[in-house]
């Protein structure tokens, strides 16, 4: 529970500017603008389809523009779960950090889902303990 509360606080500042041109100060966060601060879905598939699919696309094939979103489908970088867990937690190079928006259980669920779908066959589920460790090494 403690982690969830802490994560919520992080997100207040991170999400303050999300819904409009400009970040609003933490103290003036408008629920009517920013909405909830946490991802609602708890299951891996639900999280994928309401967060990840925004960039990696519903079919996990990614996309290309001036930069690119890597395909998660048949991606051998998912073999070691630490890599996707760290990316979801911290973000990098365009990938946002979701540590404030998702609990450890949600991160475990969504990484497990991606590693076992879209042509990825990494059957070992991501454990809560593993995600917790990545969060704590921040």
């Amino acid at each position: 529970m403690k982690t969830i509360i802490a994560a919520g606080l992080v997100l207040l500042s991170a999400s303050a500017g999300l819904a409009d041109e400009a970040p609003v100060a933490e103290g003036t966060l408008h629920a009517n603008l920013a909405g909830p601060s946490h991802v609602a879905k708890q299951d891996g598939e639900g999280i994928y389809n309401s967060v990840c699919a925004a960039c990696h696309m519903p079919n996990a094939k990614g996309g290309t523009g001036a930069g690119h979103y890597p395909a998660l489908a048949a991606n051998d970088k998912l073999a070691a779960s630490a890599y996707p867990v760290t990316l979801v937690m911290n973000g990098s190079k365009g990938m946002p950090s979701f540590k404030g928006m998702m609990s450890d259980a949600q991160i475990a669920a969504v990484v497990t889902y991606v590693r076992t779908h879209f042509g990825n066959g990494y059957a070992d589920p991501v454990t809560l303990e593993e995600v917790k460790q990545v969060r704590e090494t921040q």
Partner: peptide, 13 residues
């Protein structure tokens, strides 16, 4: 629509 945050991600998906 003018949406951001987790809901923005959900719509963007």
């Amino acid at each position: 629509t003018f949406s951001g945050g987790p809901e923005g991600f959900a719509l963007a998906s």
